[in-house]
Design a protein around this nucleic acid. Structure first.
Lengths: 145, 145
DNA sequence: AGAAAAAAAGATATAAAACTCTTTTATTAT
DNA sequence: ATAATAAAAGAGTTTTATATCTTTTTTTCT
């Protein structure tokens, strides 16, 4: 697994919120949990965190909920991964060595270099807003039963 | 992280054993733990498992220890990952959807396809025996302090 | 002002991963 | 045969990730 469960949910939730936001809808936790098939209380915690860090917007009270403004629609997968899982996927040694580097490489360092570049590039260029469009067109899905 | 800690240790230990085996040395758990900088009792469990599944060879008693025969030197990283972490890295949806597929893809499915192919190819073609040669030549390292 | 809705915050519970310790079994050398 | 060595096996602990439950705060609507 590349991501923690928390991170998977965070990405899926962000895409869900983005999709609704493009129609100017705010969505409540309960709806998000259903929409991405995640535990309600768990995703609540995650949304709280995303909100505190400014990746999503929120309004309390009746007719409140979560949404994403123009700026936040430009958030990338990479941004979310960095927030939730930290930079380890992008920087840590694939074999878990603390000091692995170009000059003192682990046995997989050079072999893995290109793949890592691939991963970083992919997630850096994937914008939540853009991704959500495909979901809106029913080309891709956030939950599958 | 691509691998569990257990899997990282398993790979490093296998490479270490392979390296020593090419000089026809058997190695004890204690030496392996030192050689790859891992918790001794933890790696013991992992070696037990690798041995039971036939990926490494072992002999009990004085002058005993672990080694790899010709056949086992051909073991790939992929083989070890499959044994320890299972196939999830190679097959599971990157966003954690249970039913993600070509016909019902998650929002990252197509984007991630190539990267995944990369990962699989890399680990399928990386043989422990071959990797251990670079370590022997001090070109790459199993622990770095 | 009061009731209801919804997120924020805090505390707790459960499960899985990582790690440790102890006992047993097999092998070898004296 | 006995003692020593080393892996195998079993059981236990600690830590981290995942998930749940409860209370508080903010906002809106009547």
């Amino acid at each position: 697994m590349l991501f923690s469960k928390t991170c998977e949910y965070a990405i899926r939730a962000s895409i869900y919120i983005a999709q609704q936001s493009r129609e100017d809808k705010k969505v409540a936790i309960k709806e998000i949990a259903k929409g991405i098939d995640s535990p309600e209380h768990f995703i609540a915690k995650i949304l709280q965190n995303l909100s505190k860090k400014g990746f999503i917007n929120s309004v309390k009270g009746p007719n409140g909920g979560f949404y994403m403004d123009k700026k936040n629609l430009k958030t990338t997968i990479s941004d979310i991964v960095l927030l939730i899982d930290g930079e380890s996927l992008f920087t840590n040694c694939v074999l878990g060595l603390k000091q692995c580097s170009e000059s003192k490489p682990c046995p997989l360092h050079h072999e893995y270099k290109n793949t890592r570049k691939n991963i970083i590039e992919l997630f850096r260029t994937s914008k939540i807003g853009q991704i959500s469009e495909q979901v809106d067109l029913n080309e891709t899905f956030l939950k599958i039963k």
